[in-house]
Computed example of a mutant assay.
Amino acid sequence: MTATVSADSTSDPKVAARQQGSEEPIDPGVAGRRRPSRNRVALRLLARRLLIAIPTIVLVSLGVFLVAGMSPFDPLTAHLGDRYQSATESQREAVREAYHLDQSWPSAWWDWCRNLMHGDLGWSATQSQPVADVIAARMPFTVGISLAALLAAAVISIILGAVIGMRRGGLVDRVCTGLAAVLAATPPFVVSLLLVSVFAVGLGAFPTSGARRPGDDYSVDGILTHAVLPFVALTVSMIPWLLLSMRAAVIDAVDSDAVRGARARGIGGIRLLRGHVAPMSVLPTLALLGTRLPELIAGAAIVETVFGWPGLAQALVDSAVALDFPLLASLAVGSAVLVLIGSALSDAAAVWIDPRIGLTA
């Protein structure tokens, strides 16, 4: 009887596996299909995004030239200014020929692409200098204040969103969500004007515009002093959607079975937030950063215009009004490239942190 039971038991692979200390025998087919590493998943996503980005950038550049070509603005008014009314027809025709204003938009697009292949961004008629020099001089101001505001908004929103999400329904949660809803409905230029009225005009604590005093050269102290109000305005305009997203993600994580199991094991407080809630909640906020980059660029343009910040916003407006194709195309396509890069990097970081989320393109 004993020998029979032993033979029957060992003939069952599951029983034999348990006798050897394992749960079930390993299926060779399953064992051969290993889950790809997180680095490989992230790199694969970046490669797919690159393939998608190339035709997207081409279409964006075509759209810029098409819309600019259909614009009702007469570029001569921007080039001649006050001399437009007094200029003769021959003078107007000379300006058109000098700046190629009579060129059709497909021809202008093709010339711009051809010059771009040779590393030449063209000549900006509105700024009277090469486009590369315009971007090189103004980009540090735009990128610097935008990245600083984005980093500050992300840190504030993640920390505060985690706190109010863990204690939803409390006084701090109601106050923060109410303020976030109000700020989300307030345009950035309104926030900027309020800051100017209170802190620049009323209190005189900060300069009203620019990045230096008239007649002075750029200095670190002058730039930082002038950057306070536009930095605050841009940060405040980005906090609401990040804060509310982080709060919602924390609430979903708190209600999950994993967190309930951790609480049942006696885990709570900071340990629960750091080890279980935060890893599940940061991913949606991280993915949101990439998708909201267009709003960051639009908000930066508005804030720069209100505060007279010497970034790329005013150059973009001038190029659009004057149909300055080389500068307009470079700034618009550059903004699209930044959005695509930011979205791809945020999604790649998300799948690197958690490959199970399944982003493929």
Results as ranks from 00 to 15, higher is better:
Pro294Ser: 04
Leu195Asn: 03
Gln103Cys: 05
Gly122Phe: 03
Asp8Leu: 14
Ala149Met: 04
Ser219Glu: 03
Leu171Ile: 15
Ala181Pro: 10
Leu76Arg: 00
Ala315Phe: 06
Trp241His: 11
Ala7His: 12
Asp102Met: 08
Leu76Trp: 01
Ile145Gly: 01
Leu243Pro: 01
Gln127Tyr: 12
Ile52Gly: 13
Arg83Leu: 07
Val250Lys: 01
Ser245Glu: 07
Gly222Pro: 05
Gly215Glu: 10
Ala108Leu: 02
Ser61Tyr: 00
Asp324Thr: 09
Ala248Gln: 08
Gly261Asn: 14
Leu66Lys: 03
Val190Cys: 13
Gly266Glu: 06
Asp102Asn: 14
Ser157Ala: 15
Asp8Phe: 06
Arg33Met: 13
Ala336Ile: 06
Ser104Asn: 12
Ser37Pro: 06
Thr56Ile: 10
Thr4Cys: 12
Val351Tyr: 00
Ser343Asp: 15
Pro240Cys: 08
Gly342Asn: 07
Ala152Ser: 11
Asn39Met: 09
Ser197Asn: 06
Ser90Ile: 12
Asp257Pro: 09
Ala332Cys: 13
Ile341Val: 13
Gly222Cys: 03
Leu293Phe: 09
Leu328Ile: 08
Leu316Val: 11
Gly63Cys: 12
His226Ser: 05
Asp324Arg: 03
Ala87Thr: 05
Phe231Val: 07
Ala149Pro: 01
His100Tyr: 12
Gly215Leu: 03
Leu328Arg: 01
Asp74Phe: 00
Met238Tyr: 05
Arg33Asn: 11
Ala278Ser: 13
Ala258Thr: 13
Ser330Lys: 01
Gly210Ser: 10
Trp309Cys: 11
Met139Arg: 01
Ala125Lys: 05
Asp318Tyr: 08
Arg212Trp: 07
Ile158Asp: 02
Ala344Cys: 13
Thr142Leu: 03
Ala248Val: 07
Leu328Tyr: 00
Val333Ser: 04
Ala264Phe: 08
Asp257Val: 15
Val220Cys: 11
Ala287Asn: 15
Leu147Arg: 04
Ala152Asn: 06
Phe325Ser: 02
Leu160Tyr: 12
Leu46His: 05
Thr305Val: 11
Asp217Cys: 09
Arg263Ala: 14
Leu50Tyr: 10
Phe65Met: 00
Arg33Glu: 14
Val201Ile: 15
Phe325Asn: 02
Ser37Glu: 09
Ser157Met: 05
Ser335Leu: 09
Val134Lys: 00
Arg114Phe: 13
Asp82Met: 12
Ile52Val: 14
Leu43Lys: 07
Ser128Asn: 15
Ile159His: 08
Val5Pro: 11
Leu229Asp: 01
Pro75Thr: 06
Phe231Thr: 00
Ser6Gly: 09
Ser71Cys: 10
Ile357Asp: 09
Cys176Glu: 05
Leu283Asp: 05
Ser146Thr: 08
Pro36Val: 02
